[in-house]
């Protein structure tokens, strides 16, 4: 597979935002999760022959500046449409994993007209009724990594994109990204009490994908998203943990293609 993308930047609110861009077709914005921008993942490349895929680095994560008043997760969601505006994106498919999915859901709830389709992969954002979203801060980076896979043997590709920090530079980078996640997600932890209500106004087609064995965001959250978004479909991947894009990439690709490529 040839990897074809470029790194561009836009300025929004005086802050320089780094964006990976590749492919051709209608815009699809992939919103990264807690690790920061992991780069051009294989799943983006596979979407790139049908979409122009944009992978912005969120403000405050390594590579992008943050306006000093963007402090909370809601602030981030309110600020983000400006970034898309500077990218010249009118209406786009929003796709995100974990807190990236949460961000996509918040933006869709705020600006439904700007969203073509919505893809939420093992997303944060809704507080479970029975279980808990695992505390990634309390577990630490390595503890969270362990919790993220159903089958630890399948973590190799993830480690290629998110290697355990060995050098001071790698540690510095991980700390920087972790600080950004802390700023946005510390309290209330990884959810917005208002989100289920607001999702009720959405009419866009939405796909909710979950690893059945997700030990970070329990499967019941998939049901809660499914119940909150009327035009949604739910796909649960068996034998898969929190990171389907690394643990079950082919299965995820098939589900994404089904949803995104069929009009």
């Amino acid at each position: 597979m040839t990897v074809e993308y470029e790194t561009i930047s836009v300025t929004a609110g005086g802050s320089r935002i780094e964006v990976l861009k590749g492919g051709r077709g209608r815009p699809l914005v992939a919103l990264h999760s807690i690790e920061g921008n992991l780069g051009w993942l294989p799943c983006y490349q596979r979407l790139a022959d049908r979409f122009t895929v944009y992978v912005p680095t969120h403000p405050g994560y390594a590579g992008s500046e943050r306006p000093s008043c963007v402090e909370s997760f809601i602030d981030l969601a309110r600020f983000y449409p400006w970034i898309l505006q500077e990218l010249g994106i009118g209406r786009a498919t929003l796709m995100g994993h974990f807190i990236g999915g949460w961000l996509a859901a918040e933006m869709a709830a705020m600006c439904p007209d700007a969203v073509e389709k919505l893809v939420l992969i093992d997303a944060a954002g809704i507080k479970p009724e029975r279980g808990e979203i695992a505390d990634i801060f309390l577990h630490g980076i390595e503890g969270t990594r362990e919790l993220s896979f159903h089958d630890a043997q399948r973590s190799r590709e993830y480690e290629a994109f998110f290697p355990p920090a060995k050098t001071p530079e790698q540690r510095e980078l991980q700390n920087h990204n972790r600080e950004a996640t802390t700023r946005y997600c510390w309290k209330p932890y990884a959810h917005d009490p208002m989100l289920p209500l607001l999702l009720g106004r959405l009419d866009v087609p939405a796909l909710i994908v979950w690893g059945r064995e997700d030990r970070i965001v329990p499967l019941e959250c998939a049901d809660l998203f499914h119940a909150a978004i009327r035009n949604s479909r739910l796909a649960v991947i068996d034998g898969c943990g929190h990171l389907p894009q690394f643990e079950r990439p082919q299965e995820l690709d098939r589900i994404l293609s089904d949803f995104l490529l069929r009009d």
């Binding site: 801060f137 630490g140 700390n175 600080e179 996640t181 802390t182 700023r183």
Partner: peptide, 9 residues
């Protein structure tokens, strides 16, 4: 654990 005494941030 280091991140108990010095959490991120």
């Amino acid at each position: 654990p280091v991140d108990f005494m010095a959490p991120p941030g």
